[in-house]
Structures are given as structure tokens and as C-alpha cells.
Design a protein around this nucleic acid. Structure first.
Lengths: 193, 193
DNA sequence: CTTTTTATTGATTGACGAGTCAACAAAAAG
DNA sequence: CTTTTTGTTGACTCGTCAATCAATAAAAAG
């Protein structure tokens, strides 16, 4: 009983299923069948709407990055001072939407994908550039020409805490992770020059 | 023409080949045949000396961690003051041996392996604990009860810079990466309480 | 010498997975 | 109504790969 206009629905379902499956399985070794089953359709249909497995992966990455970007953007509009803006970026990075274990696990695997897939690499590089650029921009009025280094360290620590999260030894706490980065921000602002 | 006492030689060759192959390919999707070929033997022989693929991976991880640990240890014996010791750990982390692109790429993939393999997870957790413990111990005399947070931040930044390295956009520079972490150390020590 | 132990591989098996295709169903267009 | 477009799948192909095994060869032990 084919209903019309299924394409966007199916694509969205597949993208979500892909992130969930990669996250749940903790690996890129997920079959198209698994993804399709999780999205409630046959693997043939998945191949029909996307060209192949890699295209599905890339769409899932784009979606993840978009969600992340939206969270950051949403937090930024409510911030006024430069310091508030930096804080907003940090908080958004560890917000409930982005810092869920499956999502973090998916991120890790996207880094792996980027090792072999130029498209994936491009996407991650863009994300990195944006994050640093955001931080640098708002740090400039706060610490002047130390902004570059500070942005690099804050961004690096964010990535590092994500990585740590993938080992999932303790219960995930975005709040705690954010606190670590905010402490670093304090340090950067307290500096005696 | 079988020479005797080949076992340790073959095992070592396989371990090295595994790291190289994972690094070169940027993925855990390396076949036993590829590893064996790189190590100059048949895949059957690889299976003979190790139980299976996972055992080969775990041996490669152990080796990587051992090499890293040795580098840190070697740097520590030449350091005297607490600050020198922290600096030594940081420098060793980004030393020429550990910060080669293939090795960093292998590290990334070991994190992925740890998502599904409990043994691999255990190994990485031990590495994390050791690194933090080392840092905490030497930071204590420098910053007192702020040592815990400082160690967490420094360790996190190290991991984050490793992660960044895997995207390999620019030429890898362990020196530059180390400089970032040393700058953070400066901040931690300059703090006004 | 024979027998055992160690080293080694080509060939094979068995499983699994990406991608294709023919065929069927229903809605929209004509 | 017919035809075309859109949605959907089961079955199949083709390739790959981990793991096994039988067979060969040389050294060591007896």
C-alpha cells in the first residue's frame, strides 16, 4: 500500500537508524540490512533511496553535524556578552542532545570514516574550523591575541572529553564534562600577561 | 626451510604489520591476509601463531601501549622537579615515536575496537588511568588540591590533539601539539586562587 | 636412522553482505 | 479506463574473508 511522498520520510528514518545503529554497535561494521530493519524497511529500499552504504553514512554525518550546529546556534542567540557566547558554545557541545552515548560513539566512528572517505573528512574539517572560528571570534575581545591559542585549547579539550566519553566507564555526565571546559575558560581569562 | 625459534620473530612481525596496516588503511577493516603479507608470511601462519584476528589486534594494542609507556618512563627518569616531570610526560606523548601519523591513526581505531571488545576497553582504561595518575601525582605539589582538575584537563587536551591529528590536514607537528599542552600547563600553574 | 616436534602454505569451506533486478502494488496523470 | 510514476520487496549474484586442514619439509630427539 504505497503512500506517496515517502522519500523524505524514508531518508530521515534511515539517517536516524544509521546513527543509532552505529552508536549501539560502536562500529562502522553495520550492515545495510541492520540499518534498514531498524528503520522498518527492506535493505533494497535503502539502496533505492541512497546510492549505497557510503551515501547513507555521509547523510548520517551531515545530519549529526547539522544537529550539533543547530544546538550551538540556538544557544548563541540567547547570549549577549562574548563570555556568555563562549560559555554557550561549550554548554551546547555537552548538551543532552549531542552528548548522548550513541551520538558520541557515532562521532568517533565518523572520525574513522574520515580516514578513508574524503567527503567525510571534508565535513569534519568544516566542523573543526567552525568551532575554532566561533571560539576565536568571541575570545578576541576577552584575551586579545591570545585568542588563537585559547580557542585551540578549548576546542581540543572538548574533542578530548568526547573521546574519553566513548570509553564509557562511568555514567555520562555532560554537566561534568562542560565544567572541565568552563574551568579551562576561567584559566584562560584569569591569565596574567 | 624451517628455522627454529621463529615464533617470537613471527609474532613481533605480525604485531608491527598490524599497526602499520591499520594506520595505513585508517580502519580496522584490514584482512588477516593483508597483515600477513605485510609481515612476509601466509595468512595461515598468522592464524597459527595467534588464535584469530582479535588476538592479533589485542597484541598490537598491547604493543602500542607498551611503546608509549616506555617513552613516558624514559622521559621521566631524566626529570627531577615535579614540573619537569609533567613536562616530560607531555613531551613524550608527542614524541617522534608515538606521534607518527600511522600510530595515531591506529590509536583512533583502538578506541573503536574498545567499543565492542572488553579486553581492548580494559587496556585503554588502564592507559587513561595511568596517564591521569602520573599527572596528578606531579601536579599535587604544584597546585595542591587543584591537581585533579588540572590532570583531567591536561590529559583531555592530549587526547583531543591526538584526535585532531587523525584528520591530518596539515603536516603533523608533535612540537606544536606539545606546545599547546605546555601552554595549558603554564596556565594551570599561574592560577590566582 | 626413525620419530617427533616445529614451521609453513595452498586449497577449501562456510558464512555473510553489498548491490541488482524482476515483479508486484497503488496512486496520479492522461 | 489505461498509462505512467512512485513505492516496495524477495530472491539472487558475486565477491570477500576468517578459519580450518591436509600435506610438505626440515630440524631435534631418541
Amino acid at each position: 500500500m504505497p503512500k506517496l511522498g515517502m522519500e523524505p520520510i524514508r531518508r530521515a528514518a534511515l539517517v536516524k537508524a544509521t546513527i543509532d545503529e552505529i552508536g549501539a554497535q560502536g562500529s562502522l561494521d553495520v550492515t545495510v540490512s541492520q540499518i534498514a530493519r531498524r528503520a522498518g524497511m527492506s535493505s533494497a529500499l535503502a539502496h533505492h533511496y541512497f546510492g549505497g552504504k557510503e551515501d547513507i553514512f555521509l547523510a548520517a554525518m551531515r545530519h549529526t553535524l547539522t544537529v550539533y550546529g543547530a544546538a550551538v546556534h540556538g544557544a548563541l542567540v540567547m547570549a549577549t556578552t562574548p563570555r556568555d557566547r563562549v560559555t554557550a558554545v561549550i554548554r551546547a557541545s555537552f548538551g543532552a542532545v549531542n552528548f548522548r552515548p550513541e551520538v558520541v560513539s557515532a562521532w568517533l566512528n565518523f572520525y574513522v570514516l574520515a580516514q578513508t572517505n574524503p567527503q567525510a573528512q571534508r565535513l569534519l574539517v568544516i566542523y573543526q574550523k567552525r568551532l575554532r572560528s566561533n571560539l576565536r571570534h568571541d575570545l578576541r575581545p576577552l584575551v586579545g591575541d591570545r585568542a588563537d591559542g585559547a580557542a585551540e585549547r578549548i576546542a581540543g579539550l572538548i574533542d578530548g572529553l568526547y573521546l574519553r566519553q566513548t570509553l564509557g566507564t562511568r555514567v555520562p555526565s555532560g554537566t561534568r564534562a562542560a565544567a572541565h571546559v568552563l574551568a579551562l575558560l576561567d584559566l584562560e581569562l584569569q591569565v596574567v600577561t
